[in-house]
């Protein structure tokens, strides 16, 4: 007689009804949500730093000192000709007085600036690729052409941005590590509670010859599964918040990076969910083995 149709489906050996699984999943999901925001922030900071540096590295600003205002146009023409010859692939642009005044607006306000305000004569060089010149060499060459100029290759800003960007990245990574540690602690605590709550099941499993590894595998599987569910819930909410922040972000340049999302970030977020699952599983495995060994030593 074939009763296969009546065979009940396989139940998990550990009882899942009485171990506060929902609370655990909620806590882990909240932590994963925070971790996903930290991760998106880290990726945004990295992107912003990289973009800023690329912009700064591919341009330079030259301030031409003109003692006699009548000579200003001549000096600019000479400098332009020299720079075009020196950097044939670069774009050389002279910043007009009106434009230069606009640059001062954030500091001096939008009221009409006095006509006799000594506005510096500025030129910008935009390179196709990253610049390769030496600022002091260029200054000497310009001086040889009779132009007294201050050459700013933006390295000062680039270094500061690099430091700020690295600081933000390190903070985000530190936050991620803290969240991972918290997840491991939560998973270990949950395993400890489950081992205690399911003492009867464990006792029967040991009676029928289950090894510590077999029992531990049950906890690893359970914690890994819960970690994965929480991970994906947290990542989903993190992604939604990041997308909303992305839509509402301020397009003006800001010192602190906005949460922006790229499609490649999705891969990182999937990895984050898997990471949370792995951390929960490993923490559960270590806790289960440790407690079972302690129990064996005592008995």
């Amino acid at each position: 007689m074939d009763n296969r149709a009546d065979i009940p489906s396989a139940y998990p050996l550990l009882n899942t009804r009485h171990d506060n699984a929902r609370t655990l999943i909620t806590v882990l999901a909240i932590m994963t949500f925070l971790a996903s925001l930290a991760l998106v922030f880290a990726l945004s900071a990295q992107r912003l730093k990289s973009n800023w540096q690329d912009e700064l590295r591919s341009s330079a600003t030259i301030q031409i000192m003109v003692e006699n205002p009548d000579m200003k146009a001549l000096k600019i023409d000479t400098a332009t000709a020299f720079l075009k010859a020196e950097f044939p692939n670069a774009s050389i642009k002279t910043i007009q007085t009106a434009e230069a005044k606009e640059l001062l607006t954030p500091w001096l306000g939008s009221v009409n600036l006095p006509e006799d305000l000594p506005i510096p004569t500025l030129m910008t060089i935009d390179f196709e690729d990253q610049k390769t010149f030496n600022a002091s060499d260029l200054k000497s060459k310009l001086s040889a052409e009779g132009i007294i100029a201050d050459v700013d290759d933006h390295s000062r800003w680039s270094d500061q941005i690099s430091r700020t960007g690295s600081g933000l990245l390190a903070s985000a990574i530190a936050l991620l590590v803290l969240i991972f540690l918290a997840c491991a602690a939560v998973s270990a605590f949950a395993t400890q509670a489950a081992l205690s709550a399911q003492r009867n099941v464990i006792r029967v499993l040991i009676q029928v010859g289950a090894s510590d590894n077999f029992i531990t595998k049950l906890f690893i599987w359970q914690a890994g599964k819960r970690g994965l569910i929480s991970g994906f819930i947290g990542v989903l909410f993190g992604t939604i918040v990041s997308i909303i922040a992305n839509l509402k972000r301020n397009t003006e340049t800001s010192l602190i990076p906005d949460l922006t999302m790229n499609w490649t970030d999705a891969l990182w977020l999937i990895c984050l969910a898997l990471c949370i699952s792995l951390i929960c599983a490993v923490a559960a495995g270590i806790t289960s083995l440790r407690l079972l060994h302690e129990e064996n030593r005592r008995s």
Partner: peptide
């Protein structure tokens, strides 16, 4: 010492599951 949350089939099959036999 039957396990409460497992049905009769699963309780009886327990030693075989512990020996990692497939269903």
């Amino acid at each position: 010492r039957l396990i409460d949350h497992l049905n009769v089939f699963e309780n009886v099959a327990l030693p075989l599951r512990v020996m990692e036999e497939t269903r």
